[in-house]
Design a protein around this nucleic acid. Structure first.
Lengths: 202, 202
DNA sequence: TTTCGAACATGAACAATGTTCACTATGGAC
DNA sequence: GTCCATAGTGAACATTGTTCATGTTCGAAA
């Protein structure tokens, strides 16, 4: 095994260990010493492959985001562009997003919980990834001819995504009485349908 | 000054100091020692009036929530119940919520960032407070006669609130390019109007 | 094969921070 | 003034992220 390969293997082990911890106990439970133990390496070794825990978390999030993208991308696009069909597609996409969030609750939450220390910027690609999410919503809007101006349409797509995101965020929240996933999915359907109908009728 | 009065004064001083820190530097900057210094008391004194920092944060959040409630309650209700009027009222309420979030960004964020250690429950009244927020949305829905079933209506109000919340959350986020408040307010208007129109047309 | 240097890994040590507790100070009742 | 319950103190402890002097390992050159 070459030197850089060993480093890559260590990086992978640390990342896997950290991901498992976040997935099962949340971001708040991510401790350097636990990661080291789980990864079977020393405490200091972590810092030879990640500059600090923040960067480790960013790597976890990048993975999560990538998986989410893949699931969304796997969803087939309809070939007709009637209001009903496109609406159904958007509802289905929302369902994929919700299912992902529910099945990867703590990892998904880490995506948004994590705040960088003041002044530190998100790496470029992480920002682009976010836009990818918006695009999944923008495409149906384009198909429907809602909001012909591209800038306005991008803004609207972002708004719709944000609204969806909020519903899922608070819906999965355990602080309140937890809502069954199916109930939440229903609510999302109702709201998405209403929004598209309302937008189309403008 | 009686003994319990002194205790109350200390509690107030600690709370004020902590609130000021969160308001200016965020939840993450809340350190026991800084609070003590700012409140002009010793480190240990904090723990004589709050069992731990979590409870202190809860007290800060209760205050913030109370202020938010007051601002929302101060908004006049319309006396007619046409779709346009009620929609306008809901848009205005959303604006109040947005303005509050923007003007108290870090305190508002603390409301949702804060997670209790696993197994610890939110105090009763904090939960009720949340429902109060939903009620502000439920009332216009009731007026419009949208969703006559009270349970379904409550659920829908919660969903609309969550959607609104998501738009504001991501809209004020600084991770992405920050959106000007006015742009965001516009988007919220567009979405609220579309949702109500779509819901009313069901 | 042996030797050597650079890369790699280690974990004790440090700093920051929440929390506790043995001790001190204080205020009011008598 | 004396006394004691209550309040307040801050040194000490536990937990955690991070660093760094030191030890270890690997691959190639001799």
């Amino acid at each position: 095994m070459g030197l850089s390969e060993r480093k890559a293997a260590l990086r992978e082990a640390v990342l896997n260990a950290a991901e498992a911890i976040v997935a099962s106990h949340g971001l708040g439970a991510l401790k350097a010493r636990d990661v080291a133990q789980k990864a079977g390496c020393s405490l200091g070794a972590i810092y030879t492959v990640f500059t600090d825990l923040d960067m480790l978390i960013l790597a976890i999030n990048a993975r999560t985001l990538h998986r989410l993208e893949q699931e969304l991308a796997a969803h087939p696009e309809p070939d007709t562009a009637t209001l009903n069909v496109v609406t159904g597609n958007l509802v289905a996409l929302s369902g994929v997003y919700l299912d992902f969030a529910a099945a990867n609750r703590l990892l998904w939450r880490a995506l948004f919980e994590h705040r960088l220390a003041e002044g530190r910027a998100l790496p470029q690609d992480q920002n682009e990834r976010r836009n990818t999410l918006f695009n999944f919503i923008e495409r149906p809007l384009t198909k429907l001819g809602i909001e012909p101006d591209p800038d306005a349409r991008a803004l609207l797509a972002r708004s719709l995504f944000s609204a969806l995101h909020g519903m899922i965020l608070l819906g999965l929240e355990e602080k309140l009485v937890k809502m069954p996933i199916e109930t939440l999915k229903n609510q999302i359907g109702i709201v998405v349908i209403a929004m598209l109908r309302g937008l189309a009728a403008r």
